[in-house]
Design a protein around this nucleic acid. Structure first.
Lengths: 165, 165
DNA sequence: ACTAACATTGACGTTGACGTGAGGGTTAAG
DNA sequence: CTTAACCCTCACGTCAACGTCAATGTTAGT
């Protein structure tokens, strides 16, 4: 698997790859420059080097990292948790820790999956509940109100349980 | 303590129902007093009256309202959205608007359901992706690293695509 | 009447994830 | 060599959803 993106130059990789400035990375990642710098503050990403004028230069691979961060954020993870799952970019880690972290990520994802499942159920319940209320309101209370047009606040209504006051 | 809850009076409901202070409501709703007051700031709830000393007194029915708010919050709705869905408590609304709002709530819930479905899919994808990476790492890279123990940062590794730098 | 336990209204503090300048250097195109 | 378009580092601002503290008033039970 693993879609082979760079079809050319598969053998000996040159050390000089097309690096990108923070603005370029921000654009392709659809985030702001500030966001990237903030991620760096949290040690989530880092430029592989800087220009003489201290411009950050990123490896294109960092885009994948950023996307991973965004994906996890989208799953309601706080950046703090993302750090825990993806690890600090400054940890120039051996494969052991990297494996551990991936397993952590996996564990986190599974927990998250469960949570989402729960929320789905919760949501179904709520939807049904509201549907029921809706039905009672429209079939029972609405005509009742029509008979008592002067009454404004439903104080007379006998089906208060369906209301969400 | 003020646990004198009058259990009697089941048949003809007196206008004087067992009202609750903010502390009591907070306790049964498992939220803080501050939270309830904050909800009131947002016009999400309101006491039906106050004592002569300005103590808030809530109708027991308000508990249901609070629980609805909490449920929606738990579904990642901002309180602002909850206001839009449940309506302001100060809107002493006729049944028409109430019906409208319930329909809004329903619509919101359906949207939320879709969103959650999407997230579940996203999450499954991510989980599979990570599993794959995990597999490659442990079967391909790990032994490779063992052969080059001096190398720390995986710079030699030919499977960088599986890493999340 | 006294008192402990509650309640009131401000008003300022907190946390996360950035936004938004200010006041400067740097780079690439022409 | 200019100059527009970038980029740099502070550093303060923001927003939601409350937490927390102060100074004061109210209730219920004895």
């Amino acid at each position: 698997m693993i879609p082979s993106e760079s079809v050319a130059s598969a053998k000996h990789q040159e050390p000089t790859q097309a690096l990108m400035t923070i603005g370029a990375l921000a654009e392709v990642a659809h985030v702001t420059v500030r966001t990237l710098r903030y991620y760096e503050e949290l040690d989530l990403i880092a430029p592989i080097k800087r220009t003489d004028g201290r411009y950050r230069l990123y490896h294109p691979r960092t885009l994948k990292r950023v996307k991973a961060i965004l994906a996890l954020q989208d799953l309601n993870y706080a950046l703090e948790d993302v750090v825990a799952m993806l690890g600090k970019s400054s940890d120039c880690s051996r494969i052991g820790t990297r494996l551990d972290r991936m397993q952590n990520t996996l564990k986190g994802l599974e927990a998250q999956a469960e949570g989402l499942d729960q929320k789905l159920v919760q949501l179904q319940t709520m939807r049904q509940d509201i549907s029921k209320r809706l039905h009672v309101l429209s079939t029972v209370c609405a005509p009742c109100v029509e008979q008592h047009p002067a009454t404004d606040c439903l104080d007379h209504c006998e089906h208060r349980e369906v209301h969400l006051d």
